[in-house]
């Protein structure tokens, strides 16, 4: 039972990281935003933290 719980937990993590998050990244607005960050070489952290350098 304990191993089953662990496998279920791993399955949830795998599902989120390998399916849901890549799907979220494909949404047009999210994709455009990620591409914009990549194109301009902008450090995503700089959007949230003022001390992070804007450019990588």
């Amino acid at each position: 039972m304990r191993w089953l719980k662990l496998m279920a937990g791993c399955a949830v993590l795998g599902f989120v990281w390998l399916w849901i998050l890549p799907q979220v990244a494909q949404y047009r607005r999210v994709r455009e935003h990620l591409e914009l960050l990549d194109r301009r070489n902008i450090n995503a952290g700089a959007m949230y933290y003022t001390e992070v350098e804007e450019h990588r």
Binding site: L6, L21, V24, A25, H33, L34, L37, A44
Partner: peptide, 22 residues
């Protein structure tokens, strides 16, 4: 992961989560 990274959810959260899971 790019979406996680975009929102800056740092490694410490996931390190803790993995430990807690086990």
């Amino acid at each position: 992961q790019e979406v996680i990274k975009q929102y800056n959810y740092e490694y410490v959260l996931w390190a803790l989560l993995l430990g807690l899971l086990i």
